[in-house]
Amino acid sequence: MEELVEELKKEIIDVLNLEEVTPDDIDPAAPLFGEGLGLDSIDALELIVLLEKKYGIRLATPSDGKAIFKSVNTIAEYVQKNRKK
């Protein structure tokens, strides 16, 4: 799980172009949206693409993303349960 959390941090920095953020800057338990990283609605959509491309998970309804993308930890839990690759 810890490995997956670290992998996700790197992927998030990469796909969201968070140039000035390092994996160590991201607290896996902290909220991803609304504060801290300054992510917005397009970032959320890009995270949906990440889930599909990297882990083969297709979100049936995009609004499900709200609960999944709460923090890096919640994404990791969701990926572990649902990953197809």
């Binding site: 969201l16 172009n17 397009i42 970032d43 959509l45 890009e46 693409v49 599909e52 491309k53």
Partner: peptide
Amino acid sequence: YYPSPSHFV
């Protein structure tokens, strides 16, 4: 085929 929203805008 993984259309990128951030590229599209």
